[in-house]
Design a protein around this nucleic acid. Structure first.
Lengths: 158, 158
DNA sequence: TCTGAAACACGCGAAGG
DNA sequence: CCTTCGCGTGTTTCAGA
């Protein structure tokens, strides 16, 4: 892993705070709030994108509206050795698999999966997961209801 | 739970597909891509927001840049009865707790937590989680590395 | 790294089919 | 539900401090 210096100052943090709250806030509004010229904000945002501090601008869509009512977490034990992520990378390619985390303790992964319903989950496990070589076992946890789903990080005051 | 009709047509799905890819794409660009007038797009986007199909515009920030290198999932058993979410709602109020899911089978919740490091996690569990009445036990899974973290839903072709 | 000017492009509401 | 039109405003580049 490479050492990267991000060197964010107060103004950067304020920009991030505003944009995390609403990614569509325009430069002019941010500039007014911070008492700066819009072009200065533009420059900083471009830099934050280049430094990979800002990774993406994303529209959060209601899963129900797209008929993806089912959310599950699946623990997957694999033959992957430490540092190897062959199975993890294959899992990451599946569109319904939104997250893949390499976890401690179990030689395994935790993945987050959205499907239309339980049938969709069964299909995914039968048709897609079972095709991946090196999976030893799975344990599925089904979400009944999501109380909170935020992507907003805690941004420090300094 | 109320029955809601979303009634999304092809144009709506295309708009969602574009905006999910980049929330900052402007109406004019979307209009060009779909061969429509910008104001028609504006109208539809507003409607999608009102119908809660679009929930949020969010800037995804690199957690490393904000010194939040530690990600954990914690299973929490509680005294909450079915349909009751007292503990869940209290968990949801904690800023470091990004997600709270009511899960099947264990009278419990699965939460996703970001902290600066393992010390931050210990602090959270000692100082904050332990203050919540009704938690019976916790089981923590530590993420060593995240292979994929997307928030993009699969948008159907029709 | 900022400001300010200038050219260009977009947002967004009105009016109409 | 769409288009066209128009004014006010935002975006972006560049020179200069």
């Amino acid at each position: 892993m490479e050492k990267v210096e991000y060197n964010l100052d107060q103004v950067d943090l304020q920009i991030l705070r505003i944009m995390q709250q609403n990614a569509r806030t325009n430069n002019a509004d941010i500039a007014r709030e911070l008492g700066m010229a819009p072009s200065a904000i533009l420059e900083r945002v471009k830099k934050l994108e280049h430094k990979s501090v800002i990774l993406d601008y994303h529209t959060q869509i209601n899963p129900d509206a797209l008929d993806q009512k089912m959310l599950s977490f699946i623990f997957i034990k694999s033959h992957d050795n430490i540092g190897d992520q062959r199975v993890g990378l294959l899992l990451a390619k599946i569109p319904e698999v939104l997250e893949v985390h390499d976890i401690a303790g179990d030689d395994g992964y935790l993945i987050k999966v959205r499907t239309s319903d339980s049938g969709g989950l069964v299909d995914l496990m039968r048709n897609t997961l079972s095709q991946i070589e090196g999976i030893i076992s799975t344990r599925t946890t089904i979400v009944l209801e999501t109380v909170k789903e935020s992507h907003k990080l805690v941004i420090p005051n300094s």
